[in-house]
Amino acid sequence: MKISFYPGCSLEGMAKDYFHAIDAVFEAMDIDLVEIEDWSCCGATAAHSLSEAMSVILPARNLAAAEKMGLDIVAPCANCFNRLRYSQQIIKKKVFDIPWQVTGDIQVHDMTRFLAESSMIKLIKERVLKPLNGLKVVCYYGCQMVRPPKITGYTDYENPLTLDRIAAAAGAEVIDWSYKSTCCGASIGIARKEIGESLTMRILQKAQQAGAEAIVVSCPLCQSNLDIIQKDRPDRRTPIFYFAELLRLSFIAHGDPKWFKMHFTDPVPLLKAKGLL
C-alpha cells in the first residue's frame, strides 16, 4: 500500500521524535509513506488569521503535488490536516485563483483516522509484540482534528475514538474522560502566557483526576503545550506520548530510552516501572 505523506513543519523541528516514530511504525506495517516532494508550509493559523486567500493557496500547492502523484494524503498534524481539508473545500467553491493545477478531489486523511480503520487496527494487533499492559492513558484530540465537523468530516466530534482505538490496539488501558477535544490554547501561550496556562493546566488536571498515568496525542502543538508546561512543576508528572511512540514501543521487544529524550516530562521512569522499557 502506498500513500502520500505531508509531514508539516513541526515534524522537522519540535516534533522530530514524532517523525521518527511514524517512520518506524509505517515501515513495520508495510505501508509505503511517500513524502510529498518539496512540500511547503500549510500556513497554519497565521495565514488563516491574516490572509484568507493565502490560507487557501498555501495548502493548495501541496494538494496539487499529491494529485500529480495520484495518491491520497495522510497528515500527522491536526492543524495541517484541517488546513488541507479547508483549502480543498474552498478550491471547489472557485472563489480564489489557485496558481497550480488542483481539483481538491483527493482524500486527505488525518493519520489517526487512517490507522483506526478496522483493517489497520487488525494489522496493528498483528504487529504488536509487547502489549503495553497496565499503562493507563487518556487520549487527547484537541480542536483542529475534529472541528468544525463540516471540514474534518468527523461525525463523533464530541467523543472521538480514533486515538482510543489505536492505543487500545497497542495494549494500553484506555480511560474515558470528558476533555478529549477541549482546546489546549494552541500558540496563544507564546504571546499570552496566562491564557495558555489556564487551558493547558485544566486538561492535565482532568487527566490526572480520570486516573491517567499518561496522555496520548497526535498534534505536535498539543504535545508541546501539555509537555513543556510541566517543567519546573515537580508535582506534575504526566508524560505526553504521540500515539506513534506507543505503537513503536509495542512493536518491538526492547524499546530504546533514547527515543524519548525530546520529552520534557520524562516518560522513561513510568515505562520502566511498567516493565515496558
Binding site: 513543519c9 513541526s10 522537522e12 523541528g13 519540535m14 511547503s40 508550509c41 500556513g43 497554519a44 493559523t45 497565521a46 495565514a47 488569521s49 491574516l50 490572509s51 493565502m54 498555501l58 500558540s187 496563544i188 507564546i190 504571546a191 499570552r192
Partner: peptide
Amino acid sequence: SLAVFHQTFLEVLRKSGKVNE
C-alpha cells in the same frame, strides 16, 4: 503581541517556504 506573532509566522514562511520554529 498576538497579532505580531501571526505576522512573524508569515514572514518566516515567506522567506523559506517552511516555518522553522
